[in-house]
């Protein structure tokens, strides 16, 4: 996935002189995950900008660039560090179109690695998607594989509102697949059905997609797996259609359970699909605790937790 994002950024920089990357250690160092490797050497330090250590400044400056005809692609080194910039995201980026009656807009793509899987403890592992998804005006995306990462980013390049592009750091190097060299787009706001099935629906995204897929294949469950790809605005109609078919549903994500995306999707289904459901809507998620270092493997949803929920759902006929 690192390579897919790197080549897409390279493409974006080559096509449009108003595209700039900015963030901490993204230039000389190529980024702490090497996502921007080689780009400063190719495009110069004025377009692949090593910034001082100030997240709110990186985001605020990007918003100002975006308001003035540029296409900034800021990187926040770890999503955990974004919170000093939260004011800029919530009160400036997200609201500028609305508060100006559509006269201003902020075409910025904020990239940031998120989630667990690298033994990062409390401050290098968080999944904060619900914070962003709860803010009207922000669009939240999380790819689960290199193909989608490139395709979604290509769509993001033409998008005219601020995007939080959450990169599951666990998948940066653990998932390999061939990505076409030619230009293609994966639409924003459209989920993908990773696997078709009839017995139950599993809604997930990001780093949990391969975890869910592996568990389902290994245990030969006839489950339909939906990868949201876009977290906000999520693809309600694809979820609804699937749940009407299977009658059973669970949501899997790393982020803490209470008021996470699972809660939103549960409410969405309770409002519209209650007549089709044979059992409860289940959530397999991280617990409502901070993200622990040594006990990471216990924290994250895994095959055992997923299969336990599958077993429970299958009791309802």
């Amino acid at each position: 996935m690192v390579q897919a994002i790197n080549s897409t950024l390279d493409y974006a920089l080559s096509k449009n002189n108003d595209v700039v990357l900015l963030g901490e250690d993204i230039g000389r160092d190529g980024g702490v995950f090497r996502v921007t490797e080689g780009l400063q050497a190719k495009y110069g330090s004025d377009r692949v900008i090593d910034t001082p250590l100030v997240e709110l400044g990186i985001v605020g400056m990007s918003i100002g660039m975006a308001l003035n005809g540029m296409k900034p692609i800021p990187e926040i080194q770890f999503q955990d560090f974004i919170f000093t910039a939260f004011d800029q995201l919530v009160n400036q980026a997200a609201k500028l179109r609305y508060r100006s009656g559509g006269q201003f807009n902020v075409p910025m793509i904020l990239r940031t690695p998120y989630g667990g899987g690298i033994k990062g403890g409390l401050y290098h592992s968080q999944s904060g998607e619900a914070y962003f998804a709860h803010t009207a005006g922000l669009t939240v995306i999380s790819p689960s594989n290199p193909y989608d990462a490139k395709g979604l980013f290509m769509s993001a390049l033409e998008y005219e509102d601020p995007i939080i592009f959450l990169e599951p750091k666990k998948l940066y190097r653990s998932v390999k697949m061939d990505v076409p060299d030619e230009e293609y787009k994966v639409p924003i706001g459209k989920a993908s059905i990773v696997r078709e099935g009839n017995d139950l629906t599993i809604v997930t995204y990001g780093s949990m997609v391969p975890v869910v897929s592996a568990a389902i294949e290994k245990n030969k469950v006839d489950a339909e797996i939906i990868d949201l790809r876009t977290i906000m605005p999520y693809d309600g109609s694809t979820i609804l259609q699937s749940v009407k078919k299977t009658g059973r549903v669970m949501i899997v994500h790393e982020a803490p359970r209470t008021l996470g995306m699972g809660a939103e999707i549960s409410a969405f289904l309770a409002e519209r699909a209650i007549d089709y459901l044979m059992g409860p809507i289940l959530r397999v998620t991280g617990p409502d605790t901070p993200f622990p270092y040594r006990l990471e493997d216990y924290y994250l949803p895994n095959e055992r937790k997923i299969m336990k929920a599958v077993g429970k759902l299958k009791e309802f006929r």
């Binding site: 918003i63 100002g64 660039m65 003035n68 009160n91 201003f104």
Partner: peptide, 25 residues
Amino acid sequence: FMSVQSPVATNLPLAVGAAYAIKHR
């Protein structure tokens, strides 16, 4: 003029970005 916000000083980093765009062009 930029559109006015309430949270004080949040306009300042935006002005820096605007100036970056001016210099860039």
